[in-house]
């Protein structure tokens, strides 16, 4: 150690070659998975976390694929955001995921940051969370001897908190390709147009059949301890014809359904109002 190197922390940095290796190492005390490191390093630098062993999974081939399987798109946890954006499959089948990731961080961040990392970090403002909630994504979690699959909604437990048990890791994000004929919507409110952490975001998928809402999916970020589905508003809309009265009700219900906090980026009141108003905007766009 010498000169001007500032960040020298005593730790082990282990390159993990396979899932088997990972399963052996993951239970060790002080171990933590690292992939792109774009969130982890910031947290380590601020002293929020201080792992002793970093398990680098970025080169495990099994975690690096994007595949179509039985009407689902499966994305390995170590696939970078840039790779997702370059994927024809994602562009065609999951356009909202693409829309959300285009605005995540910057080119340099997307070149390192991974879908798995963005989810495991469990920020209420995670850019990938809203589209994955809308797509009813399932997360495949693996541990020694077993694996399970849970809806992304159940994965987030609070800011920085996930359903991952000790010794368990996120392997794959499995996303059913939605049936055609929907109206999509995504808006991220930030103070600037790039490199912004969302003040609030709203995404939606809506199927209208025969003049009534056949299915409504609404999800919001940065307005609750985790990114959430607005299920009460969805229920309100489902089976109904979109009228000005319904839009007004949906707007109000969505604003009630979120539970934002005031922080240095915006007040709770603003976030609540903006979610309601974005729901209104979306529904107005749908009815044209």
């Amino acid at each position: 150690m010498s000169g001007e190197k500032e960040f020298v922390q005593h730790l082990q940095h282990l390159k993990i070659g396979s899932i088997e290796d990972l399963l052996q190492q993951i239970g060790e005390p002080g171990a933590r998975i690292i992939c792109g490191g774009t969130d982890l390093l910031v947290k380590m630098r601020s002293g929020a976390i201080s792992p002793e062993r970093l398990l680098d999974i970025s080169e495990i081939d099994a975690l690096r694929a994007i595949e179509e399987k039985d009407g689902r798109i499966e994305i390995g946890a170590a696939v970078t955001e840039s790779e997702i954006l370059a994927s024809e499959l994602v562009t065609v089948c999951l356009p909202l995921l693409r829309t959300a990731l285009v605005h995540l961080g910057s080119l340099q961040i997307r070149n390192r940051g991974t879908l798995g990392g963005n989810l495991v970090n469990a920020s209420p403002a995670a850019d990938s969370a809203v589209p994955l909630l809308l797509y009813n994504a399932e997360l495949i979690l693996q541990r020694a001897g077993s694996e399970r699959s849970i809806p992304v909604e159940e994965f987030f437990r609070g800011p920085g908190q996930t359903a991952l048990a000790s010794g368990e890791f996120l392997r794959t994000v499995s996303i059913p390709i939605p049936r055609e004929g929907f109206d999509p919507f995504f808006h991220k409110v930030g103070r600037r147009r790039a490199l912004a952490i969302a003040i609030a975001s709203l995404g939606a998928l809506l199927w209208v059949e025969g003049g009534v809402v056949a299915e409504a999916r609404l999800a919001a970020g940065s307005v609750a301890p985790t990114a959430i589905r607005l299920s009460r508003t969805e229920n309100l809309l489902t089976g109904e014809k979109i009228t000005p009265e319904l839009i007004a009700q949906a707007r109000e219900l969505a604003a009630q359904e979120v539970s934002p906090i005031t922080d240095i980026r915006a007040s709770a009141g603003y976030r609540r109002e903006v979610i309601g108003d974005l729901v209104e905007r979306f529904l107005n766009e749908v009815v044209g």
Binding site: H13, G37, L41, D56, S58, S82, Q108, I109, N111, R112
Partner: peptide, 13 residues
Amino acid sequence: GRAVNSCLVFAAK
């Protein structure tokens, strides 16, 4: 070949 912020990358990588 890909641009990254070297402040967010461990040298070991």
